[in-house]
Write a protein that binds this DNA or RNA. Structure first.
Lengths: 150, 150
DNA sequence: CACAATTCTGTTGTGCACAATTTGATAGTA
DNA sequence: TACTATCAAATTGTGCACAACAGAATTGTG
């Protein structure tokens, strides 16, 4: 019962899914470590930056930016609201919408994590131009993967 | 209360974490779509390939390959066992260990998803050499991120 | 105006992920 | 032998993710 391995068979180590998977695990661990002292999870960190940069956002607009649906964002935002980082208010103009905005504490927290990108860049061992090129590749890849969707 | 944006501030769109996050979301959606008809989740697909390629594995060894701990793998493997894809047996030589191996059905299922890597490559819009280069970059990045860990 | 269709958010159920702890087995040492 | 330390897997608790659905508000059409 020896396992058969044709010469043209892709081993798991040769597949893009495995490379992406292990890289994400590694990034996740480093972000977890850097964000722990700030009381933020990785998704909360991204949400904090997105809201801070794009002002008050509806849940749907934040979901488009983060590629998450309401089933993920609603409980995540409630936890951030409970932590005092964001405020959620109904949009007067359209009562179906909920506007999410940073509180003063949220802005302070955002300022407190401003050195994280630099720390991540250092940990990655890549030069700024290598990072920029990787980012560019990932952006094109994301765009292609998303356009092919039904 | 206009948001202040210094010229040197990184916008979220310029950060590697955001690019990785959106790419992972996009990959996840495509894999979910391709694997749905086979009754596999993305982590289950990776586990299936890893076990099929590296023969019977302990939970710990599979965890090293997949960068997952027992808290994630135990229930995942139990679901795969319930689906008839893998068998779990205590290692006679060391009763602390559990050996995970593919069943005949698991091998059939693995053969059934053999075209997935090619489909993913096509969806990515990248050439084989571009994919290989991206994979190489990710592998080096993963190695660096993992070595810096305490 | 009435009413059907659409839009937006939230809830429920299932699966994936880790930290912390528990249970059981092995190895090492007095 | 007994005692400790270590190791492997499983369990528990919390958070993140989607699919499917529910409910309220808005929009479009007659």
């Amino acid at each position: 019962m020896t396992s058969s391995k044709p010469a043209d068979a892709l081993t798991i180590e040769q597949q893009i899914c495995y490379a992406m998977h292990t890289t994400v695990r590694a990034f996740d661990a480093v972000y977890r470590e850097l964000l722990a002292e700030h009381g933020l999870s990785y998704p909360q960190y991204i949400a904090l930056m997105a809201i801070g940069e794009h002002g008050p956002l509806t849940v749907g607009a934040l979901g488009e930016l983060m590629r998450l649906d309401s089933g993920t964002l609603s409980p995540l935002l409630k936890r951030m609201e409970a932590a005092g980082l964001v405020g959620r208010t109904r949009d007067r103009a359209d009562e179906r919408r909920v506007l999410v905005a940073l509180t003063d504490l949220g802005r302070d927290r955002l300022a407190g994590v401003s050195e994280v990108p630099r720390a991540i860049a250092a940990r990655s061992g890549l030069t700024l131009s290598q990072l920029a090129e990787l980012r560019s590749t990932l952006e094109r890849l994301t765009a292609t993967l998303e356009t092919a969707r039904p």
